[in-house]
Amino acid sequence: MTTIETPAAKSRKPAYRTNLVGLVGMAIIAFWAIIALIAPWIIPYPVGEIVDLDYFGPISQQFWIGSDYLGRDMLSRILMGARYTVGISLVAVSISCFCGVVLGMIAAVSGGWLDTLLSRFLDAMNSIPSKLFGLVVVAAVGSSIPVLVLTLAIIYIPGAFRFARALAVNINTMDFITVARTRGEGTLYLITSEILPNIIGPVLADLGLRFVFIVLLLSGLSFLGLGVQPPYADWGALVRENIGGLPFGAPAVIFPSIAIATLTVSVNLLIDNLPQKIRDRSE
């Protein structure tokens, strides 16, 4: 006897208790998601228009979080920036996790040469540092939003693949998979009905973490001038534009940074406070 059997297992539905910190994280994520959706209708000033006579204007009644290096309203630019940062990252993470997870499950279930080939190739891809890959692609093709989305997605496919494959390999050794195989079930059934329901929790938690990585990488690329190109600007690009305001602590350079931090920290907080069952192995 190594474990203590608890009567808790008898309760009908497992209680997914998410604590306060996790809820706060979730609320902030929801806030930015909604902003990203409705930004064009709530911004106080048109994003591209110079409305303040001063540049790097301070916080005021008129401009809630100041103005940028040209005198444009920062609040409007940050709210619109959410569209690019959240939107691009979300699409990229969805593509990379979808491809990675599907390939990972196929590799785990098929095994043999297909598994070896996929694993070897994607592991090799993984040993190109992510920022470097971004730099090389942008250098060769130039930066546009579709290129960014695809690049970010491709960079994180190997990680999503490796994670999903490891989970699926564990499940694949379980007897219920053997039972299904000897019943005569095909690969598609094994993947969708037997494996996926058992790995979906950790996979979603992993998607959250990967979303954070993508937000950070996108911001980093934009900060280097290789991400979202003017006249559009995501949060990383806003920091770059206004870096001249750094020596005197202009709000125009501080607030975009804060926006990035709130998003990434809250995703991490949410994941860290998920029930252990889902969080397992997602470290």
């Binding site: 007897d175 219920f176 005569g184 037997e194």
Partner: peptide
């Protein structure tokens, strides 16, 4: 090999494993 047997052959010969914990899909 099991995958080379017909569905009827598979049906008539069933196997039951030691650990019900791993033999039953916990998500179903």
């Amino acid at each position: 090999a099991a995958h080379a047997r017909t569905r009827e052959e598979l049906r008539e010969l069933q196997i039951v494993f030691q650990y019900a914990d791993t033999a039953l899909n916990p998500a179903k």
